[in-house]
C-alpha cells in the first residue's frame, strides 16, 4: 500500500486549514448560531418551552405598539435615502477618479463620517439643525429666513433631519465601494475606447458603467441591508416620534422589559435582510461574470 509510506504528519497537514478555521466556526456557532436559535425560542416559546403567539400579539396589538409605523418608516427611510446616496456617491467616485491637487486630504475628509458612530452622527446634526444651530443662524444672518426652521418635535421635519443625517453619514460607504470598483478598472480599457473613437459620454456609457455595475450592485445590497438596521440616528434625533424596527426592539428590551418582543423585532429585521439580499442576488448578476456560456 503506497499510503503507508506517507508520514502521519504529512497526512495530517492536509487538515491544517480546517484547524485554522475551526476556532472561527466554533465561535460563530456559539455567538451567532446559538443566540439565533435562542432568539427564536424567546420570541415564540414561553418559559416552559411551549409554543406561544403572545409576543406576536403584543408586537401587533400591545399597548402603544408602533409595529406597522416602524415597518413603514424603516422601509420609507430606505426608499428615500438609498437612491439619493447612490447617486451622490456615484458622482463623487467619478470625481475622485480624476487627478486634482489635494486629493488625498479631500478623500480622507469625505470618509470621515464612516469613523463615527450613528449616535454621534445624530448628535452632530442635532447641533447643526437645532433652533440655534448653525443652519438656522447662517440663514437668518444672511437674511434668507426671518424665523428659525424648527426640525425637532415635528414629525415631518424630524423625518427630513434623519434623511439629511443619513445622507451625510452613510453616503461614504457607498462611495468607497464604487470608488474601489472604479480603481480596479484598468486604464487601458478607457484608453482603448478613446482610441477607437468613443466620446467621453460613450466611454462612460459603454465601458465604465457596465464594468462598474457589480460594484454598484454590491453597494446597493450592503446599503439596503444596513438601512434596515437604522437606529442611532433616529433615536437621537426623533426618539419614537419616527419609529423604526431597531428602535422598537431597543424600546421593547430596555423600557418594556419584554425580551421576547425585542427578539421578534430583531428577527423581523434579519428576515427582511435575508429576503432582500436574496432578491438582489437573484435579479442582479453581471452576465459576463458567469462562466461557460
Amino acid at each position: 500500500m503506497p499510503n503507508e509510506e506517507i508520514p502521519t504528519s504529512v497526512k495530517l497537514s492536509k487538515y491544517t486549514p480546517y484547524f485554522l478555521i475551526l476556532p472561527t466556526l466554533a465561535y460563530m456557532v456559539f455567538f451567532i448560531g446559538y443566540p439565533l436559535v435562542q432568539g427564536i425560542m424567546l420570541a415564540f416559546f414561553d418559559e416552559k418551552g411551549r409554543f406561544t403567539l403572545e409576543n406576536v400579539n403584543y408586537l401587533l396589538y400591545g399597548p402603544g405598539s408602533l409595529f406597522w409605523d416602524a415597518l413603514k418608516y424603516t422601509i420609507l427611510l430606505a426608499a428615500v435615502i438609498i437612491p439619493i446616496q447612490v447617486s451622490i456617491a456615484f458622482g463623487l467616485a467619478l470625481l475622485f477618479n480624476l487627478r486634482f491637487p489635494g486629493k488625498n486630504a479631500s478623500l480622507y475628509t469625505v470618509i470621515l463620517p464612516l469613523t463615527i458612530s450613528d449616535v454621534a452622527a445624530g448628535l452632530i446634526w442635532y447641533v447643526m439643525l437645532g433652533q440655534y444651530g448653525f443652519f438656522n443662524k447662517i440663514l437668518m444672518n444672511l437674511g434668507i429666513i426671518s424665523h428659525p426652521i424648527i426640525f425637532f418635535r415635528i414629525k415631518d421635519m424630524e423625518f427630513i433631519a434623519i434623511v439629511i443625517t443619513e445622507i451625510w453619514r452613510a453616503t461614504a460607504i457607498v462611495f468607497i465601494i464604487i470608488y474601489a470598483g472604479l480603481q480596479m478598472i484598468s486604464h487601458e480599457y478607457y484608453e482603448a475606447a478613446e482610441v477607437f473613437g468613443a466620446t467621453t459620454w460613450q466611454r462612460f456609457r459603454y465601458i465604465v458603467f457596465p464594468l462598474l455595475l457589480p460594484s454598484l450592485q454590491a453597494a446597493l445590497i450592503i446599503r439596503t441591508l444596513f438601512a434596515f438596521q437604522i437606529f442611532g440616528v433616529v433615536w437621537t434625533l426623533a426618539g419614537r416620534d419616527i419609529p423604526v424596527l431597531a428602535g422598537e426592539a431597543y424600546y421593547a428590551q430596555t423600557e418594556l422589559l419584554r425580551p421576547g418582543v425585542a427578539s421578534l423585532y430583531a428577527l423581523i429585521i434579519a428576515g427582511l435582510s435575508i429576503a432582500v439580499g436574496a432578491l438582489y442576488i437573484k435579479f442582479f448578476k453581471a452576465k459576463y461574470l458567469e462562466a461557460g456560456m
Binding site: P17, F31, G39, F226, Q253
Partner: peptide
Amino acid sequence: FKGKDSLKLFIVALRMFPMMVIAVPLLV
C-alpha cells in the same frame, strides 16, 4: 482546500448579517 469557496462566501454573507439579532438572546 475543499470547501474554501463556500466557507469564504459564508464569511462574506455573515458580515452583512444584522448582529443586533444576537443582543437580546445573548443577554439571557
